[in-house]
Design a protein around this nucleic acid. Structure first.
Lengths: 192, 192
DNA sequence: GTCTATACCTGGATAGAC
DNA sequence: GTCTATCCAGGTATAGAC
């Protein structure tokens, strides 16, 4: 009765959420089945293994990230505006970050420890942000150090997410976000 | 035949290492038993549960951290020297960080996702660094913003560890360490 | 495409001999 | 203090009916 692929999509959606909140390894088929309301045996009609579900989850995250970056590209009128969109996710997603950390960073570190085959794929989510940020800094006129600046913003925000999560401290996160924005303001804008 | 408490210490040592490299949940009694070369049933003479082993591991980490901080306190002649000792661990421990990330950050995020009873204890390792760094900044004459500066250094280094691990990129880590040291140099030293 | 039943394994934990 | 034997829950995965 259900439209083609709906169950599959529901599984990926639930797994995406649970992998984030509980971790990949700690999430069982039973957990996912409870959310989607299907039987456990049914998974294997859609996926051949748990790793297969993980791959699908990573794919949707890559997709979603790309769309988000494209949206920011449209919304922001200047490169600095757009970079600020990135910085601000620490605040807009705070209610999740405080409990579960950064979705990208926590998945990558978990897969690194598991030495999981898909860790390279997961790292590509970081790369999407990296390339996008680099591009923004290039547009600001920072040709040579665009990548270093992108990595700097990436690590800064990543650390704030981790510490914000550990200490559950919104005030600190807000403070660091303000610092990041102030730092961004001091960056020169070079026009050719 | 073995001296009192030797086996226990060996278990904690092996668990400490494996929890770091594989994660707490992914490490089984069998894994630890293989390293220490004891039978699985033997664990329960020394600990009443796996969580008990985790608590012991966290305790030794707290201990070890305190000693390291005390050593840095002695070795460094100025507060800036001492803070540099902290920053440099990213380089001295690089061979581990590149594969397994920061021992403190990765444990705290894992326990946060598991919503584990010991996560508060694990967070105290972060607090040790925080208090120590704060103290250094106070000695530099930064009375009001000492804690904010400490948290800034903590998050910065944490992010570098996470991204360095994901991208396995030593050059980037070195670059960020240099940036952190340069930033430290620009900080004013106020004497009363 | 979804279900039930079940195989098979590994995990943590217990009991009791030595 | 260490061992072996064992229990039981839970995990992934498979087979086959509907």
């Amino acid at each position: 009765m259900m439209a083609q692929g709906t169950t599959r999509r529901q599984i990926v959606e639930a797994a995406d959420d649970l992998f984030y909140r509980q971790g990949f390894e700690h999430t069982s088929f039973a957990d996912i089945a409870r959310v989607v309301d299907i039987s456990r045996g049914n998974f294997y009609h859609h996926f051949k293994s748990k790793d297969d579900i993980l791959d699908a989850v990573i794919k949707t995250r890559l997709d979603r990230t790309q769309h988000m970056l494209a949206d920011w590209e449209e919304e922001g009128t200047t490169p600095k505006d757009r970079i600020r969109s990135y910085i601000k996710i620490l605040l807009t997603n705070w209610s999740m970050i405080k409990d579960y950390g950064c979705p990208v960073g926590t998945l990558c570190t978990e897969l690194a420890k598991l030495n999981h085959a898909s860790k390279t794929e997961a790292n590509k989510i970081f790369t999407l942000f990296r390339v996008w940020l680099r591009n923004q800094f290039r547009q600001l006129g920072h040709k040579k150090d665009a990548d270093a600046l992108a990595m700097h913003v990436l690590s800064w925000s990543q650390g704030v997410a981790t510490l914000g999560n550990a200490f559950d401290d919104y005030k600190y996160v807000k403070q660091e976000v303000d610092k990041m924005c102030a730092w961004l303001d001091t960056l020169s804008v070079r026009t050719k």
